[in-house]
Simulated assay, not measured.
Amino acid sequence: MSENINTATREIVTTLQDRCWHEIYEFHEVFNLSPEEIYEVITLMLHENLIEKIGYRIRLKTSLNNIDLSRLNKMKKTKRPVILETYQPKHLTKVKKHVR
């Protein structure tokens, strides 16, 4: 999974945790996810039998077991972006020796 798909997965799984029905277009409006990202995540979750879909609405299945919940938790975790591995922070302010 690419970094964008990991982020999309996290956002969708977090939203679906309330166990309510959600419109698929909501993920584009709220999180600015592309249609391709939304499609890939929903297809993956349907394949894993974690969600149910009726028309353009989805929600988590009501009969999830501990293994399913464990998979959802794993899907929510993202990796640290590679760019942060080489990031060198600079001092934002200078240390002041006294207060005025």
Rank of each mutant, 00 (worst) to 15 (best):
E23Q: 09
S70E: 15
C20T: 13
E29P: 02
Q17L: 14
R80A: 08
K53A: 09
I5D: 05
V41I: 06
T9H: 05
E29V: 12
S34F: 04
I5W: 03
I38H: 00
L64H: 06
E48L: 15
R57A: 09
I58L: 02
E85S: 07
L33Q: 00
K94H: 12
V30A: 01
Y56E: 03
I42Q: 03
T9A: 11
T43N: 11
L69H: 15
R80N: 10
M75Y: 07
H28C: 05
L69R: 10
K53M: 13
S70L: 15
T7E: 13
P89D: 00
I51M: 05
L16P: 05
T14F: 02
D68Y: 07
V95D: 12
L46Q: 09
T7A: 07
H47Y: 14
E37G: 02
G55E: 14
L64E: 07
I38N: 00
L92V: 13
M45F: 11
P81S: 08
H91T: 14
E37S: 04
I42K: 02
E29D: 14
S2E: 15
I83P: 08
N66P: 11
D68C: 09
F31P: 00
S2Q: 06
E48P: 08
I54Q: 15
V99G: 11
T15P: 02
M45I: 01
T43M: 15
Y56A: 13
N32P: 05
T78Y: 03
T9N: 03
L84H: 12
L84C: 06
I5F: 03
E26L: 13
R100G: 14
P89Y: 01
R80S: 07
V95T: 11
H47E: 12
V41T: 04
I24M: 04
H91D: 15
T93R: 07
I24A: 02
I58R: 02
N32R: 04
E48D: 02
L46G: 04
N49F: 06
L44N: 12
R59G: 06
K53T: 08
N4T: 08
R10T: 01
I54D: 12
K77F: 08
T9V: 08
H22K: 04
I38K: 01
N4A: 06
T62I: 14
G55W: 13
L60W: 05
S34W: 03
L50G: 05
E11P: 04
Q17T: 04
F31W: 02
R57T: 06
M75W: 09
T15W: 02
E37W: 03
L50I: 05
E85K: 09
S70V: 05
E85M: 02
H98R: 12
E48N: 08
K90W: 06
I54T: 14
T43D: 15
N6M: 10
H98L: 10
I42V: 10
H22R: 11
T62Y: 13
I12H: 07
V13E: 00
P89E: 03
H47C: 04
K79P: 08
F27P: 01
K77N: 02
H98W: 13
Y87C: 02
C20N: 15
N66E: 15
E52W: 10
A8G: 01
I38T: 03
N65C: 07
R57Q: 10
H28M: 10
E85P: 06
E26M: 07
R71C: 11
T86C: 07
K61M: 15
